[in-house]
Write a protein that binds this DNA or RNA. Structure first.
Lengths: 224, 224
DNA sequence: GTCTATAATTAGATAGAC
DNA sequence: GTCTATCTAATTATAGAC
């Protein structure tokens, strides 16, 4: 709104860029910080991840974090929001790529397969969840309120319906929730350990075998 | 071996205590540091846990860590060794408390139940594992070499035998390993989240239902 | 908006008295 | 063996030039 853009010079200071350019670069910096924050928080935990290394991984400088986000804490919240949005998008995409289910049990099977594939694509999500769910904190309270409670309630309610109909084994809803999420996510959360043990859990063949196995285990042989 | 113990005075400096007392207190400090280290590392991760808070939780001072252990890193190793020893002890204890299995499949079922109970008793173990298995590091290499590789190989080999005999579902060994460990541990790793969701996964009733459910899921209805 | 420089705090580790 | 005091380096956050 104020400066006189002596454009042309691309290198050096950005003070001379037109407002459009500035905004584009600002948005890019923000995005890069979010992505870098996700890997760093997933790898080292909130307290173990430093804002310096996040900024470095994003190709910018540390004070940018306090400019684009108010604090390390706010950066974490924004990154987690971003990650759950990616989860929803991935699950929806995988569901759309499957033949439409014909009954409730098949629908649950599709959800399981879609969740397994999304968990493999986004290991950061379950890594962050498992690090935060481990001890009471403001971050845990926030994540439960904003992201996990409604997912937990939707999944347990769906299982409860199947159970009432006698369509599945008689297993408690909460037991089912944690067993399923744990079984679906650990191969990807612990992928670096699996590699040291000589196995590539991020291989397409593994992911498909894993998804099939969970459907068989939780819903029985009958579901395709 | 050297000093002249002017015993009697209990309070104040311990310089006057006899050698026996000194040794006993030293061992107690070491133990307290190990226990405190476990909860702090499990709660905040290696990098997030501070030696100051560990020492405070152990009721002693921070430099004691460098005296009793060489460094924060060595303290971590000692704590993890201690924890896996506790795991073996817990599993053995739970196995002994069960009726002896009569065939290989029942033996696997007993192992599953014993592991679930041990996982509930020692949530720190799987919390630390999941934090360390998430990214390559010297600590991960060390923990795989010293603690998880032989457990992984024993469990996958046992499943492989059952599978060859047609006694269980045809599920890949590695898929089975991570699905089972994930399903068995997440309710206890994430116990604080479960509490916020209104459920106490550390309740005896939950643990038993969980163990029964996993036996049903992985081995079928037939196994008691 | 982005940068450099720096303030204020906290980290792990060490020195030395007792 | 345990304590207090302290060193060096790293942390998050802020100030101010451009």
């Amino acid at each position: 709104m104020s400066s006189s853009p002596s454009s042309g010079t691309i290198s050096g200071a950005i003070g001379g860029d037109p407002p459009r350019r500035r905004q584009a670069r600002s948005a890019a910096t923000r995005e890069a910080l979010l992505d870098a924050a996700l890997s760093e928080f997933a790898a080292h935990g909130f307290e173990g991840a430093s804002t310096r290394s996040i900024a470095a991984a994003a190709g910018t400088h540390q004070p940018q974090i306090n400019y684009h986000f108010e604090s390390k804490d706010e950066l974490w919240r924004a990154a987690v929001d971003h990650l759950f949005a990616q989860l929803d998008a991935a699950v929806t995409r995988h569901l759309r790529a499957m033949p439409a289910p014909t009954d409730q049990r098949e629908r649950f099977a599709c959800s399981v397969r879609a969740f397994v594939r999304a968990a493999a694509e986004l290991p950061e999500l379950n890594r962050i969840m498992v690090q935060e769910a481990t001890i009471d904190s403001d971050r845990l309270t926030w994540i439960v309120r904003h992201h996990t409670r409604h997912r937990f309630e939707a999944l347990t309610a769906e299982w409860h319906r199947l159970r009432s109909d006698g369509a599945v084994a008689d297993i408690d809803d909460v037991v089912l929730y944690y067993s399923l999420v744990g079984a679906a996510s650990l191969p990807y959360v612990n992928a670096p350990e699996a590699r040291l043990l000589g196995h590539d859990t991020l291989d397409r063949g593994f992911i498909d075998a894993h998804a099939d196995a969970l459907v068989t285990l939780f819903l029985g042989e009958a579901v395709r």
